[in-house]
Design a protein around this nucleic acid. Sequence first.
DNA 1: CAACCGCCTTGATCTCGGTCAATGCCCATC
DNA 2: GATGGGCATTGACCGAGATCAAGGCGGTTG
Lengths: 242, 242
Amino acid sequence: MTVRQDVHSAGIPVLCQSCEARHHGVCGALDPEQLVGLAKTSSKHTVEPGVELIGDAETVDSYSNVLSGVVKLTKSLSDGRQQIVGLQFAPDFLGRPFKVESAINAEAATAVSLCSFPKAAIERMMKESPELEHRLFKQTLNELDDARDWMVTLGRKSASEKVASFLLMIARNIDPTLDPAAQSTSFDLPLTRADIADFLGLTIETVSRQLTRLRSDSVIRIENNRHVVVDSLDRLQRRSGA
Amino acid sequence: MTVRQDVHSAGIPVLCQSCEARHHGVCGALDPEQLVGLAKTSSKHTVEPGVELIGDAETVDSYSNVLSGVVKLTKSLSDGRQQIVGLQFAPDFLGRPFKVESAINAEAATAVSLCSFPKAAIERMMKESPELEHRLFKQTLNELDDARDWMVTLGRKSASEKVASFLLMIARNIDPTLDPAAQSTSFDLPLTRADIADFLGLTIETVSRQLTRLRSDSVIRIENNRHVVVDSLDRLQRRSGA
DNA sequence: CAACCGCCTTGATCTCGGTCAATGCCCATC
DNA sequence: GATGGGCATTGACCGAGATCAAGGCGGTTG
């Protein structure tokens, strides 16, 4: 999974009045006048882990910027088997343009704060401002690249490679400034073991066993089941199947 | 995988002079004047199965419309394991906007005819014509939906469900007019067993065994190793894991 | 026609990861 | 401090799919 470089670098920080904070998401593409208009109809809110943001086959009538936290996108088979098909980190945009209903579920994986706009407002602005559509297009292209990278992991990697790849992906997304040459890093896991399993196409038990193995091989340490300390990014990378 | 409905329905057939044929791809978004300009720099050509169209990490300097045939998009791990991450059917657009190099390989799976344009020409037109960018955006959104659907298949379905899902996806893409209530259909497989395995994250042997099972259960017949006759779309669907 | 090659099928065996079940750990509540 | 619930870990066993190996089939090349 690639770090969303160009979203970060292209975004000129803009004060989105409704979010009450500078950020780099959709708002970065709007001129001050548009921003004021948007602020009237947008609202910032915070949700707890587990809250469903977009329901399967439900009508989607709003779009959001993710300000902090992690949102998981899931799909399920009729018998309950589930697969996480994407994770959205700040400052990603949440919502599927040009479609009234979504075939996927979005759920807060951690505590999440969002800035939401009515669907109609965004779509109107997209007509007026090619720059906004351009920016959403670029995010979508990045999501497509990420999804395709992940397909390789799902289809062709072993369980231990999957878990190593997952940890690396999380590390890179939580700290986008992470030096590729760095030897160690640490972060809080935004997902439970069950979520990780659904992301990797594995079972909880297998995920647990692989984490235990990484731990006993001194590649990582885990504190309080959530905080991961990677002692050797190098060895983690070598286990990820390149 | 969803059928690319809106690309089909939104496209007003336009005579792209260089392709010497009416089709619905990128050209459908251009006005006659732009088309004439494009025709000067574009060229139609046909390639044999196995020809590499876009090399991994190679500089991409042209974009193409797929006029007929099937292009497979692949990614590989350093040790040679391969995964097909997408298939492009006519009238899809081939090429990754806004990036000089591609992390992906594109290879003709069948005989393919394409209409190619220099990268610069398309990017210039995209700046002038929001409609063109809009259309490419929509195709990208569809590809993202397809990729995510496929992630569920890769991560959570059994071998027999994978093979059934694959046959259904091919049937729907080769004949987009296929009635959902139809009881039978037939088509030529655009992929070899090895390709199917790389698409499904399986081995050749497993694919072969699953096809044999579908055959002995009279769900399908296979003639000359390529032509598939589906006798019961119903039962195939029930085996695809919904 | 024989020899060969690419692709596919089938069989025997092995192994990785799933399944089932027990236990541990953390924390909230009384 | 006891009780209970939600996650996570660990162990024993099993099975789906991989691996290894041996043909089969169709086309084409000499």
